[in-house]
């Protein structure tokens, strides 16, 4: 099973959202990393045929998805970032409606829906109205409808937004479990969510793929560039103006700044093991803070 993106271009007037995006995806989890406006949502909408591309092709097992039409959508599960759901529906009813939309057989729906609700920890509130849900619960329900019907291509936009750490881990593990025979594309800002589960990370900047590779490969590029720098509180502001500081933490002795630098910033700096987040910030610089 292969999903191929071949030179996808998309512009909104003068703004170029995607500039020749190309990638070949096989079963596994693929993370799209990039700041706001990098083209992640545009790509997802093009893939789900909610947006027309200017040029390029998207092939599923060698066949253009637009030609496949219904046959491709049959294999698709989509979770947008802030899905508009029907407040007056209960969670269970909503999934039944989605089952109807996805043309899932009644017997299969009867089997899948309770399981999925259990997996996303919504079985206790299955008969409650969606309007009474918290943001995190709505997020989980949106994920539930995406995975309903066992789609082969799963497109998730910020699946862990609004979830607490425990739920984040649970969802991450859940996605990891179900992804072995699927192509899962996750767009996220939360690097830690995909760092351990993604097969490949694609870094997007202003519609262009600036880098891609496995998390390990990308992290390796930061070897020798990440330092732990002890500072006095009064030195922090000045230090930040000179170096790219990823994180500042306090200890008994003062402040420790996690810094990205090609050379050792201070005498007592310590070179530490990099993370994917360090590479993200290295690539996107101040824009990553936006």
């Amino acid at each position: 099973m292969t999903l191929t993106f071949d030179k996808i271009y998309k512009s909104y007037g003068k703004t170029k959202a995607l500039q020749g995006f190309s990638a070949e995806l096989e079963p596994g989890i693929y993370a799209l990393l990039g700041p706001n406006g990098s083209g992640k949502s545009t790509l997802m909408n093009i893939l789900t045929d909610n947006l027309k591309r200017d040029s390029g092709a998207i092939l599923f097992d060698g066949e253009e998805i637009l030609k496949m039409g219904v046959r491709f959508r049959e294999k698709l599960g989509f979770m947008p970032q802030y899905p508009g759901m029907y407040g007056n529906f209960t969670a269970e009813k909503f999934l039944w409606y989605m089952a109807s939309l996805k043309d899932i057989k009644k017997e299969d729906a009867m089997e899948q829906i309770p399981k999925i609700l259990e997996e996303v920890e919504l079985s206790d509130v299955a008969h409650h109205k969606i309007s009474s849900f918290s943001g995190g619960m709505k997020q989980r329900l949106a994920l539930a409808q995406a995975v309903l019907g066992d789609p082969k291509v799963l497109v998730l936009d910020e699946p862990t937004a609004g979830l607490d750490p425990k739920q984040r881990i649970a969802i991450r593990n859940y996605i990891s479990r179900i992804a072995f025979d699927k192509i899962v594309i996750i767009a996220t800002h939360v690097v830690s969510d995909i760092e351990y589960i993604a097969k490949q990370v694609i870094m997007l900047k202003k519609g262009i793929v600036v880098d891609s590779g496995s998390p390990t490969e990308l992290i390796a590029k930061m070897d020798g560039r990440v330092y732990s720098v002890p500072l006095r509180e009064s030195e922090v502001v000045d230090f930040q103006s000179k170096y790219r500081v990823v994180n500042i933490s306090k200890n008994e002795k003062g402040v420790v700044a996690r810094t990205i630098s090609d050379a050792k910033p201070t005498e007592d700096s310590l070179c530490i093991a990099p993370s994917l987040e360090d590479y993200y910030l290295f690539v996107f610089g101040e824009k990553a803070l936006v």
């Binding site: 959508r73 698709l76 029907y86 109807s100 939309l101 996805k102 409808q145 497109v155």
Partner: peptide
């Protein structure tokens, strides 16, 4: 209904087989 295009349920609906 939705604040922007990405929030609309129609995008989820249209991505489904019978949507």
């Amino acid at each position: 209904a939705g604040k922007n295009k990405n929030d609309r349920f129609v995008s989820v609906m249209r991505s489904a087989k019978k949507g």
